[in-house]
Structures are given as C-alpha cells and as structure tokens.
C-alpha cells in the first residue's frame, strides 16, 4: 500500500507542470524514503531528476518499493481539477494497476477523486556522479526564466560563460546578437530574492540549446532560487531546491564544436 498526503497539494501540480514539456511518461519510483523520478526528454538531450522526501509529506506510507508508471499529460489534466489550496492524497495498492488522486478543499467542503491507469514503462536509470563543478551560480529563479525567454527571441543557442566579471548569457541569430551579464551582488545590500552568488574556481564557457533551458525554467514557481552548475565538457546542472520537500534537477548536454 502506498499513501501520501500533502497539505500544500499545489506543489505536486507545480512539479508536473515543470516536467510535462520534457517528459511524456515516466516512472515515479516510490519507497519508504519518498518519491523519485528520473527521465530523459524524447531527444535524449536532457535528464530530469525529481526527489520528494517522505518527510516533506504530512503523511507518507509505502510498504513496498515500486515504480508507478504515469502519463504526465494525463496527470497534468487530472491536476487541473486540483485547486490552489487543496490537500492532495495519492494512493496505490501494491499490486494495483491504477493510482488514485484525492483533492480536498481546505474547509473540507469539496472532495474530488480521480483514478488514473498505470503504465508499464521500460525506463533506463542513470548513475549521476557527484561532480565538483568549476562554477556555480545561484540566482533568482524568476530572473533566470526571464533571461531564457528574452534571449530566445534572438537565437536557439546560448553561450553561458562564467568569468571574473560575472555570468554572461550570449545569443546570436539572423536578427542580431544579445548579451546579458549578471554580476555577483553578495557584497551589496541586495534583498535576498535578487541575490546573485557566483562561486568560480576557473572560467567556464559552454553552449546550450535554449529551448531546453526554457522548459527547465517552468520549475520557477516551485521555489525562489535556482543554481546553475557548470564544468567544461559536462552537462549543465540546473537545480531547483524546494525547501523541506526535495529538489528538481535538470541536466543538459552541451553543444560541442567539432
């Protein structure tokens, strides 16, 4: 028996909104420690890794570890019926072929339940090594969304370079070129939400497809901050930490010159 109840049910809705552009169907691996998901996009260019800790839920019970294969676009449709302040309960039997969603309004005056059929999904799992990244930038999640959306007007590829002057996002396309530089402002009196922290061991300069970054940025409603971790010739890690609940990490393979 699996049962998980979350007062802040909206979090689940936001998680699915942050995944469904990249991943059509995925296994939610449930165990006594929580829920994990690892999935690649259909082009195998990026990898999403979700972690939701059991302690982050108001109630969490999982008698047997198992994968719950779910179509994310169906799940997103079901979650459209969940209101902002609803309490969400997820339930599945050990040998069942469905997952149950229950949405309760805060005042307990409306209760809805939905059942979704589970799918058998043959998914590969990757071992993600602990990487000592050469540059880490932590900034406002909404500002990062803005940068990705704004620069995509000009081109498909962004060069991200972290140097002593800050982190520069550059795009060039048929229309022209654009650069946005964000500087470390930790020494000034910047309010928490707008703080930019740059931790650089050595300069890094890598190219990435903007369309994936734009999809990752859909996770911004989950939390205030995002971290970008870079090292030469390895995937970019874009990490959204959800306080007391878990994290949503995206890995994006770079574009490499011949």
């Amino acid at each position: 028996m699996f049962e998980a109840r979350l007062t802040k049910g909206e979090l689940i809705k936001k998680v699915i909104e942050a995944l469904k552009d990249l991943v059509t169907e995925a296994n939610f691996d449930i165990s006594a420690t929580g829920i994990q998901l690892q999935a690649m996009d259909s082009s195998h260019v990026s990898l999403c890794a979700l972690q939701m800790k059991a302690e982050g839920f108001d109630h969490f019970r999982c008698d047997r570890s198992m994968p719950l294969g779910i179509n994310l676009s169906s799940m997103s449709k079901v979650l459209k019926c969940c209101n902002k302040d609803d309490i969400v309960t997820l339930k599945a039997e050990d040998d069942g072929d469905s997952i149950n969603f229950m949405f309760e309004s805060k005042d307990q005056d409306k209760i809805s339940d939905f059942e979704l059929k589970l799918m058998d999904i043959d998914s590969e799992h990757f071992g993600i090594p602990d990487t000592d990244y050469k540059a880490t930038v932590t900034m406002s999640a909404s500002e990062f969304t803005r940068i990705c959306n704004d620069l995509s007007i000009l081109g498909e590829t962004v060069a991200i370079s972290v140097g002593k002057d800050g982190v520069r996002f550059s795009v060039s396309g048929e229309m022209g070129t654009g650069n946005m530089t964000v500087r470390d402002n930790t020494s000034s009196d910047t309010k928490e939400a707008d703080r930019v922290e740059i931790d650089m061991e050595e300069p890094v300069n890598l190219n990435f497809a903007l369309r994936y970054l734009k999809s990752f940025a859909k996770a911004a409603p989950l939390t205030d901050r995002v971290s970008l971790c870079l090292s030469r010739d390895v995937p970019l890690l874009v990490k959204y930490e959800i306080p007391e609940f878990g994290s949503l990490s995206y890995y994006l393979a770079p574009k490499i010159d011949d």
């Binding site: 260019v45 190219n207 890995y251 393979a253 770079p254």
Partner: peptide, 14 residues
C-alpha cells in the same frame, strides 16, 4: 553553433 551531444554520453546506465 556546435553539435548537440546526447545526455547518455555522460552518464552510465545503472
């Protein structure tokens, strides 16, 4: 600008 590399090239399957 640059060739897109696949993500599997970086992570070993478990």
């Amino acid at each position: 600008k640059g060739n897109q590399v696949r993500i599997e090239n970086f992570f070993a399957a478990k």
